[in-house]
């Protein structure tokens, strides 16, 4: 099996690749900025680090946008961190248009004012291990306890237009969407590659996930060019 980790020059993809290799020893994990390699892989991981304006710019500088849009419709697709945020229509970070694969906005923590929880100032970025409430049953949550902790580091969070696409919620201090799911796409705000047992389990689940299998409740919009 070939799994492409899309490399558009933003940050360290080694951790993602190593973690995927760890859970899928038989697979060929390709860190790549070649559209052809992305298109020919069986599964795609779309990571992201840094600032969204830079990520979008670098993605386009490598002419990867069409390939990402294509595989986001046609292959098991895992977005991580900024890779989740980029799927949406628009981010407040640098007033940046996203890929528009999912409807909704990306907003900054605390833009409504100082965040406090029980009298304690909440810091931005939201950094560290926080719990994820699984808001729907999904093959990628299989074997992972509800409210398991994952490692987060981010200052912005997604607000999907379709609340039904939320697969996981996290409180900081108010609930925000920390995982989304639609059809062949699963995308998370946290870093599974840095989230120890729970994170590795999620990656293993992704490697084995068939969004088009019969009876999979996550299947909502089956693309015509099924593989």
């Amino acid at each position: 099996m070939r799994i492409a980790v899309i490399d558009y020059g933003m940050g360290n993809l080694r951790s993602v690749a190593k973690a995927v290799e760890h859970v899928a020893p038989g697979a060929e994990v390709l860190v790549t900025s070649s559209a052809a390699e992305v298109l020919s892989a069986e599964r795609v991981v779309f990571p992201g680090q840094g600032a969204m304006p830079d990520c979008m710019r670098e993605l386009d500088a490598r002419a990867l946008r069409p390939a990402v849009l294509e595989v986001a419709r046609t292959k098991p697709f895992l977005g991580i961190c900024i890779g989740l945020q980029m799927l949406f229509d628009h981010s407040d970070e640098g007033d940046t248009p996203g890929l528009g694969v999912l409807g909704g906005e990306v907003r900054r923590f605390g833009s409504e004012g100082l965040m406090e929880d029980a009298g304690r100032r909440l810091k931005v970025p939201h950094m560290g291990w926080n719990q994820v409430r699984q808001s729907l049953a999904h093959p990628l949550w299989q074997g992972i306890e509800n409210l398991a902790r994952f490692y987060f580091v981010h200052s912005y969070y997604v607000v999907p237009a379709d609340p039904g696409s939320a697969a996981g919620m996290t409180d900081y201090p108010r609930p925000f969407v920390s995982a989304v799911s639609t059809g062949n796409i699963f995308a998370v705000q946290f870093h599974p590659e840095k989230s120890h047992t729970a994170g590795l389990k999620l990656l293993a689940n992704f490697v084995n996930w068939n969004p088009w299998s019969v009876g999979d409740p996550s299947l909502s919009d089956r693309p015509s060019e099924k593989r």
Binding site: D117, H126, G128, W129, N130, Q131, R133, L147, R149, F152, T170, D171, Y172, P173
Partner: peptide, 8 residues
Amino acid sequence: MSLATRII
């Protein structure tokens, strides 16, 4: 439920 304090 909230963010855990990290030990490093």
